[in-house]
Design a protein around this nucleic acid. Structure first.
Length: 431
RNA sequence: GUGGGUGUAGCUCAGUGGUAGAGCACUGGAUUGUGGCUCCAGUUGUCGGGGGUUCAAUUCCCCUCACUCACCCCA
């Protein structure tokens, strides 16, 4: 018998170990705080949804639906691991008739998403997104507010070199009109386009404008801009959005060629990218836009909506290294059996007062325990040995100040707690 | 999905057709009960996995897996 096979996480799916989880928690806390300040409440939906939900909302012809979904059969149901969060939120909104409870709903979510792509830096098969959705508000005020929230959150996280791109896709009047104008422009140029783009002209001509191919870019130079074909209402919405963003001092770039890979968007479209940190080619940190017809398309009432999603892995790359904030804690070092029992009790007493405590119960040398105390980042260390048990004392060592004092065991808990948490002036504070 | 690069100790990486090394980390000691610095000693590897060539493969060849870069796509 050989050794058992060593398993590893599936391709493109990663463990996040304790050594790095604090960065995730910091990011998540910043997101939750920003969302909460803006009136969003969390929604949690299943990670699996009926496959058709994504086909209908994201769009049958999109890459996400055509080749990236994890889909499987379970009895008679076709289920899919969610590739994004908006469809689920909209499904939940419709299922629970939330429009009957309140005119406007602001939701945020956070969690893993799945897309079967070839992994690269900033692109994994299981990745994590956080996002916000607003149902029932036609904008454009909430559009501007949403973009502004994202930008200030990124700035607060220390991410530099941000670029905000915005555009408008117009509504049901604008799109067909622009589409035919664009087709008239592209068809004669088909011969100059890359094979990839040529194939797209009829399927999704908007995407041709977004090509990275140099030949395509040259050929597309001077293409008509959708912004010149907006209906009066779409134009009013678009102009107001820009005015409000300027008022909020959000620097943005108008990118008429901006395209999202999901079919459901209309009117406001935005993307925030950064060239900071260790981001490679995948430098879009967040993207979103309006999807005013999705709720209705999913069998609900006519309810306008807007949302965005941000990729947590990429944001962490863009954030780069940062100082870990270590919370004050106490390290208890007992030597010997009796002392170990007492160390356990001391630790419990300290925890009851809200102090973070480690007890090193290994049967090894004082030196190695102190080494661990030091590298744990603990601020103080309580040493209990045979002689301390006999004299009813504890050696209280301050690892930062390199000082040590002997304190009575019965006052040790209070003294340590005061030192770490700061003495809390309660009734009659006399200092 | 297409094309390229990489894969040696827990981590960062040297190295060789004759089955391996450094630094960091870890453990012990110098200090029989005192951490961060210093010094000394020690532990750790199926040289990513499988197959082939060879007397002999970690080294050469093929396949495969993982990561990575570009394309693609997107957050």
């Amino acid at each position: 018998m050989g050794k058992p096979t060593r398993f590893q996480a599936p391709k493109g799916m990663h463990d996040i170990l304790p050594a790095e989880i604090w960065r995730w928690q910091r990011l998540e806390a910043a997101f939750i705080e920003a969302a909460t300040l803006h009136g969003y409440s969390e929604i949690r939906t299943p990670i699996l949804e009926p496959t058709d939900l994504f086909v209908r909302s994201i769009g049958e012809s999109t890459d996400v639906v055509q080749k990236e979904m994890y889909t499987f059969q379970r009895h008679d149901d076709s289920l899919t691991l969610r590739p994004e969060g908006t469809a689920s939120a909209a499904r939940a909104y419709v299922q629970h008739a939330v429009q009957a409870l309140e005119p406007i709903s602001r939701w945020y979510y956070l969690g893993p998403m799945f897309r079967a792509e070839r992994p690269a830096r900033g692109r994994q098969r299981q990745f994590h997104q956080a996002g916000c959705e607003i149902f029932g508000d036609p904008g454009p005020t909430c559009d501007a507010e949403m973009i502004s929230m994202l930008v200030s959150m990124f700035v607060d996280l220390g991410i530099g070199e941000l670029e905000v791109s915005i555009s408008s896709l117009g509504g049901p009047e604008t799109r067909p009109k622009y589409r035919s104008v664009l087709l008239d422009f592209l068809r004669p140029k088909a011969a100059d386009l890359s094979e990839h783009s040529r194939a797209r002209i009829e399927v999704n001509p908007f995407r041709v404008l977004d090509s990275k191919d140099e030949g395509d870019r040259a050929a597309v130079e001077g293409a008509p801009s959708i912004l010149d074909y907006l209906s009066d209402e779409d134009r009013a919405h678009w102009d107001a959005l820009k005015t409000q963003l300027e008022a909020l001092e959000v620097p943005f770039r108008v990118s008429p060629g901006l395209v999202r890979g999901l079919d459901y968007y209309n009117r406001t479209l935005f993307e925030i990218s950064s060239s900071a940190g260790e981001l490679g080619a995948q430098n879009a940190l967040a993207g979103g836009g309006r999807y005013d017809t999705m709720v209705e398309d999913l069998g609900g009432p006519k309810i306008p909506a807007i949302g965005f999603a941000m990729g947590l892995e990429r944001i962490l790359l863009a954030m780069g290294e940062s100082e870990r904030v270590v919370e004050p804690s106490c390290f208890v070092v007992p030597m010997g059996e009796k002392a170990t029992i007492d160390g356990l009790v001391l630790a419990r007493e300290l925890r009851q007062l809200g102090v973070r405590v480690d007890v090193d119960g290994r049967q090894n040398s004082l030196k190695s325990k102190l080494r661990r105390a030091n590298s744990s980042g603990a601020r103080v260390c309580a040493i209990i040995g045979e002689s301390e048990i006999e004299t009813g004392t504890v050696q209280l060592k301050d690892l930062l100040q390199h000082s040590q004092e002997q304190v009575p065991r019965d006052r040790a808990t209070r003294i340590i707690a005061d030192r770490l948490l700061g003495s809390t002036p309660r009734a009659g504070g006399n200092d």
